[in-house]
Design a protein around this nucleic acid. Structure first.
Lengths: 191, 191, 191, 191
DNA sequence: TATGAATGAGCTTTCATTCAT
DNA sequence: AATGAATGAAAGCTCATTCAT
């Protein structure tokens, strides 16, 4: 087995474990058990430490989301279109990659990631940029872009938690509701 | 020292510790250190276990928030007024009780609380009830009350995290932005 | 069992283990086994960490040696008398407290102790002070006190290692030989 | 790369690492890092085990010292001359090969070497032989040759440790002081 | 000659909890 | 109401070594 494949296997198992039992309960032992590894030593061998493993998990998720969003946003030309695409893209991704998204949120909420400027921008700053563009172009009304971005981000992040208590939730409907909410909340009142 | 006073002291220390270093890093040892107790034994003595302590902390916060909101909402007669009062009440409470709110969120997000119907209703269901009343009374447009309630709740919960990276944030402005957002997002379009 | 007694028991066991198998091979598990403790957890309970345990061991030895030397040197008035008393005192102590001295040397040689000024003075500086007094008072010839002190100290420290390969060594004779060596090496040539 | 060259490279790296961080902290991982090897596997490949590596390091140092001393002692005909040449030779070697000597001492003091008669003779017995020759030939007074040899050996070994706390030490002066000490301590009193 | 992958045993430290006053 | 002493389990990490190319 190649190191790359083994690392991928361990990352996948870690995602599952974090999503299932939470960041705080996740340990090498639990990951090894889930991945059916002979011992936790195999994890230590392929990752320099817990930090590196967690970082790898986060990067895996962030990259996937980034790719997905890039595709979703490619065709959009208006800010409101981009905002809609962002929300629906995130909701879609969450619906089809529940564990990955849940694990990413767990990591962020528990401070398991050492931020850098790139990470911060790719995760949090995306929406804010769209909002500012919309205001500059006259599509959106005046509001505090930071606050609105937070609201969008939190609303989207609410889905993984909702899915835990309601696994059969209609995600598409959830997305549509959010899109409507933020369209009404951001558009120029004269429209 | 009375048992009641000692319990209150320990709960207060636990709130501080959770707010400062997060739920995951919080331990009896660190709470004892913060409260300047001679040993963790004093915590075990006054609380049956970690669960009971965490529950006490959560209940402390929930009760405080409940009292605060009850006062804020008392004078309101319309659903939109109640929604505004709820958002501004929560933001105000967060601004003046940062640690308490942060600790409560940490506990919820890390699954430290064993839900029961009462807890769930008092925390999450409040907004949903208001929204349904508004729809029943014709004040609000049609939307999924559950989804909207989630969005409101998450938006409000965003403040404690924002305060960590931006301690000098203008909380009142944050509240006003959210009120505007949800007024635009919930009102009947004919208005 | 009182904490004090337990700490003393653990310190004694640690001294034995270090003396027997060396600093590098010494572990909590080995100490617990030697002291017949139920688990290593008992060591962690009474000492904040390995550093604290090692420091306690070193302090135990240093204090014992200090007391012994103080008694030996009390009656001496001349520098040559003090030097003789120092050498014989150290040799005597080593002969009757082999493990303690061996353990102390192991700790020093492996950098297990975080020096401070007091430690340094009490361990290394003692001889140098005596030598300088002897030179100032005209008893001793001119020489580099630092170098001579090192030679004395190393010669004395040689005994524990010699005792390992030759347990039946005549320590008193060893001491007498060293006294003669350093008397000849330090006295004024005109004598 | 030839096996011989690779072994030499690893031995050199091991010497550096032991001298820098001590025998106790030295591991294959750290040696590999220092030598910029891709993995510790390369060490295991060229040496049957840790023992063989350490033995190789010690032999490297012992051989170097032996060569150096042989040259220094070649011209000497008297025992006192040989003793002086030995001390100065060892001090010189230490001054110019600090790491090698430090590593050798670390290995000896931590029992990393499995003695055999040859090793013992070549390292410790050298001085004792000189001293006995001097006594047999009437140059030296009566003393216990074993004890005196120990004192000489330990005094010489003190230099590497002294150099750690005082890197700019005047080694030549250190050697002269020791030579004087042991000349005074060994010569016939009638002289 | 070299390497990638894997491994079992060991390490110190921290966890909440319990027994006995 | 409080405390001192003790505890089993689990954590992440490092050790030298080995199997199979």
């Amino acid at each position: 087995m190649t190191a790359q494949a083994r690392r991928a296997q361990i990352v996948a198992a870690t995602i599952d474990v974090i999503a299932e039992i939470g960041y705080g309960q996740t340990s090498f032992a639990r990951i090894a058990e889930h991945a059916k590894l002979s011992s936790t030593r195999l994890i230590s061998y392929h990752f320099a430490g817990k930090d590196e493993l967690i970082t790898a998990v986060a990067e895996d998720a962030i990259t996937s989301i980034g790719d997905h969003l890039a595709r979703q946003l490619a065709a959009e030309t208006t800010a409101s279109g981009m905002l809609r695409a962002y929300i629906e893209g995130m909701v879609q991704f969450t619906a089809t990659h529940r564990s990955r998204m849940k694990a990413l949120l767990e990591i962020f909420l528990n401070g398991g990631l050492h931020y850098d400027a790139t990470t911060d921008q790719s995760v949090v700053g995306h929406v804010e940029t769209i909002l500012r563009q919309g205001q500059a172009g006259g599509e959106f009304r005046e509001f505090d872009a930071r606050v609105m971005a937070t609201a969008v981000q939190r609303a989207v992040e609410g889905l993984p938690f909702l899915l835990e208590s309601t696994p059969d939730l209609d995600c598409a409907a959830y997305g549509r509701e959010l899109v409507t909410l933020f369209e009404l909340g951001t558009r120029r009142s004269s429209e």
